[in-house]
Design a protein around this nucleic acid. Sequence first.
DNA 1: AAGTCGGGGGA
DNA 2: TCCCCAGACTT
Length: 403
Amino acid sequence: MPPAPLPSFATRLIDWQRAHGRHGLPWQGTRDPYRVWLSEIMLQQTQVQTVLAYFPRFIQRFADVQALAAASADEVMQLWSGLGYYSRARNLHRAAGQVVAQFGGQFPTDTQALQSLPGIGRSTAHAIAAFCAGERVSIFDANVQRVVARYLAFEGDLAQAAHVRQLWALADGLLPAPDADLRQAMPAYTQGLMDLGATTCTPRRPQCPRCPVAQDCRALRTERVLSYPVKTRKLKRSSETWYWLVLADGPLHAPGTHMLLEKRPERGIWAGLHCFAVLPSQEALLARLAHCTEAAALAGWPGWAGGAGQAARPAPAVQWQNGFRHVLTHKDLLLIPALARLPHAGAQPRPALHAGAQAGGAPLRWVAVGDILGGAVATPAPLLAWLKAQQSAPAAQSPIKFE
DNA sequence: AAGTCGGGGGA
DNA sequence: TCCCCAGACTT
């Protein structure tokens, strides 16, 4: 009589997940592809702890894909504000519209249809199909790459796409057997892979004694766990200094003070968010300030514009603030706010500025400090952080000077 | 194949 | 500080 076969990688992983994996997260315990999709997108390059604050709010506002499709892009951006990688939010909204238009509002669960939606690549499509339909496909995010590379002692450099594809194919060999009950097995297997990478097979301090597949791990066998995955870094971060034109009509710690924000282009950094004008030099900032204040005078700014000839009034002085650093993956930004003040408009309506006040013709809005802090408009995280800091340490109030 | 997109957490 | 992370998209 032949000996019973040893439990497979997949079997051990599934058993471990049920006993020691993460349960009870808001996006778990469902096969609703809308919820799974939303969680997968939010969790791209973003930690669970962060997503926990956003996911319930999003679901509460958009209970299903129809509700999301019917929303304005601005509102979606607003709910996404602070999560980063804003193209995810834009694609999310576009994909919702596509599901309504092309799939009759029924969210697909097969990998082919999923990958036709914007923002869903191969790995995310596999995750949704595995969780919702039990499709026998491998997810392959950074956690899984680490687990599998260690388990197989994979020597290829994962900085190269060809090696990633190669390891991905090897990962397929670890999937639950095709004749298993995949509708039960695939969700637990997929979740188990992610949980193992997140809680046990961690980058720096893996807890191998608690790993369910340690007995077969080729990296552990040679005590080279930390040598995997092989991944060369070629991060060369460039530095830039940006000047922020902060045009306000009162002290920054007063909720009623309004500030001029412009909507950023749909591509590039902080795409689609509302932000202070960003200028590459002090000279450019002063020129923009002159444009804006001239435009404000022409538009009849309360207490300032006074008829013909007012357009020639010089721009108010600026107060240069201390710069602060904001680091992105590929760019190191030094942000220097320059505060300029228009006369207080009180409760009077602030006139819209013509598009010429902004070089690219981007939409300009006067927004109250209280509304910005309250999240009424989507703003980049560093802007919000800086404005919050101004609440507790208000800049010295100086009278408005005209030169 | 390389570059572009944020932000937060952990060592 | 530096490294890492539930990637997709553009060029």
